[in-house]
Write a protein that binds this DNA or RNA. Structure first.
Lengths: 340, 340
DNA sequence: GGCTGGCACTCGCACGAACAGAGTGCCAGG
DNA sequence: CCTGGCACTCTGTTCGTGCGAGTGCCAGCC
């Protein structure tokens, strides 16, 4: 029926108006601002149906309607065309990200860019270690029985760990160890590095056995330890804007959850390069994120995403715009990290 | 005179009460809560004088008094004894910071700890490069004419830069280069590294001249570039608490300034290990920090501070408590980084 | 059958008056 | 020099009222 068709159109109009004005939207205003071709009275009837179906709700008996989480969900799934970024925005992305000097810088710029583009809180995950490969391992002696292990990955990430050796080590042993480690691990995917350890222990000369064992253990901890999956967060100032109203009362729990990182990291782990994932309000299991929406996507080549990035904001957000921004930035960052 | 004596006592009482209650404090309440030994009427007279001298002010004609920035200043300089941390707090510091695995982890824990201890926004500066010394330089080949330069300092910091060589480089050259660089720079303070470049160029074998020149240039950029003086920020959730009232209207400018980092970094550059520096409200030149106070101190050994750390909060803060916390944490972090 | 204009109704909210409470400044007396 | 008392000045709050926005429903129209 053209009936349902129009009703969805009404929902779309409600979402759009509410997102841009933050006021519950009434039938009269809707009829004026959109060419729906029908009168306010008809729109009222449609709205009554939409409300019954749970897509919209009215905060007070005599106020306009506001989309529910379910309404936003429908909007995102069926009603919103991802709007392409403007040429100016594309240029901004390039200008912003080019000239980054190292990984930290790339991610820092990315998060600032994303925050600025979307006016939301932006989140960028460090490239997951397990999916990168070892480019180089460096061993530096910092004391008689203490070594600093530095791991450099092909995504430009650098990890370091202090290793306390059970015995004193001399310079020659350090050089040997370095050669051994690089021979064993260079080019190996971190996820598969564990498999190489037995072979390494076999080939290690007798006098290095103990040392190699100790170092390997620490190395494995470094690789497996997920605590090192870090987040870069930016644009929290955007929360202070008008959002005190968007988030029932306080933004505090949200800020705490963001600083905690662990919640967001778990959500990030589900991303998939290429398809933008939107989580709306109550769909987020974690309590602090109720009332917030996340727009995330993976970056890196489609078959092996390196990490995730996205934005966090009130459910009342510009989904099409944010989805477009997140996708565009992810694509660009993916290229940037792939080539370096 | 015992006169002035008591007047200062009144100021101290006003600051203490106002900090803990956030209500303008009146003469009657003061007399009740503190043993000043005089009647409210007398206190009123003292308050009139204090107001005339600019230490306190009343927000409205018939409200209690509130300390001015000048009042807080006097309180901090003359009236507040730094209160020692409780044993539980000391234990918390140790428990929190021990077990950190690398520099990033140390600073991350530090900032969380400080935020938790003071219930303010905490800021920790990465150890300044120029005051550390080179522990090791690593050169890794990532493409025919592209090298990755990794600098490891004695404070555990790792910096990396990509260097594009004008000519293709072979593995032997990389090894030679590595040896040359380490011979020239190992143990050298970064601030003095520039002086070593000419000597390095002289001793470099002919076929490496060009490469060494390129690499040295990048290296110098890395060392001098202050953009890499980074901050770790935490506890921003504490701003969302009641502080909407403390900061006239909005915390937004403050959050923006914090993310900007540059303002805070400049303030941090003035720190001095050992003495806690307090900047109150209007004393901060930068506009966004008007209305905020900073409590900062340097960490590292007294003669050469590695960096600064501190907290940012409303002028209405517990100065003695925050000063104590900041100092204790700085001391602990200083030890931690010195020994590693 | 679906759309439209009209109408009565319901609330939230802004505005204004009245009020209570807190705090002050000043003065006269101890 | 301190103290108790007193008149005065505000602010924040509470309560009523009127207005406007928006709704649901109904009868009529295409």
């Amino acid at each position: 029926m053209a009936h349902d068709e129009r009703r969805l159109e009404v929902l779309r109009a409600i979402v759009q108006d509410f997102v841009s004005t933050n006021d519950p939207v009434g039938s009269k205003a809707l009829a004026e601002r959109h060419d729906l071709g029908v009168s306010p009275a008809t729109i009222r009837n449609d709205m009554a149906v939409l409300e019954e179906q749970g897509y919209i709700t009215q905060p007070h008996t005599s106020a306009g309607r506001v989309p529910t989480d379910k309404g936003y969900r429908l909007f995102v799934d069926r009603l919103s065309a991802v709007k392409p970024l403007s040429a100016a925005e594309r240029r901004a992305i390039e200008r912003f990200l080019d000239g980054a000097v190292d990984l930290h810088d790339v991610l820092g710029r990315t998060v600032r860019l994303l925050a600025q583009l979307t006016r939301q809180v932006a989140v960028v995950q460090y490239p997951t270690l397990s999916r990168s490969a070892v480019r180089h391992l460096e061993v530096v002696q910092v004391a008689a029985s203490r070594l600093l292990l530095v791991l450099i990955t092909d995504t430009g990430r650098v990890e370091q760990r202090v290793v306390d050796s059970p015995v004193e080590v001399d310079a020659g042993a350090v050089a040997e160890l370095r050669a051994l480690l690089n021979q064993a691990f260079a080019g190996v995917k971190l996820a598969e590095a564990g498999d190489k350890v037995p072979g390494l222990l076999d080939t290690a000369p007798q006098h290095l056995r103990g040392l190699v064992t100790t170092v390997s253990t620490t190395l494995m901890e470094t690789l497996v330890e997920p605590s090192e999956d870090r987040l870069v967060i930016g644009g929290t100032a955007n929360l202070a804007h008008g959002s005190a109203l968007d988030f029932r009362g306080s933004v505090r729990p949200l800020l705490e959850a963001l600083e905690e990182q662990v919640v967001v990291l778990r959500l990030m782990s589900e991303v998939d390069a290429g398809t933008v994932l939107v989580r709306i309000g109550e769909e987020n299991a974690h309590e602090a994120l109720t009332g917030a929406s996340l727009v995330t996507v993976g970056y890196g080549s489609a078959d092996r995403p390196l990490g995730g990035l996205g934005v966090v904001g009130p459910t009342r957000m510009d989904y099409p715009g944010n989805m477009a921004a997140v996708r565009a930035v992810a694509r660009y960052v993916g290229h940037l990290l792939a080539e370096s």
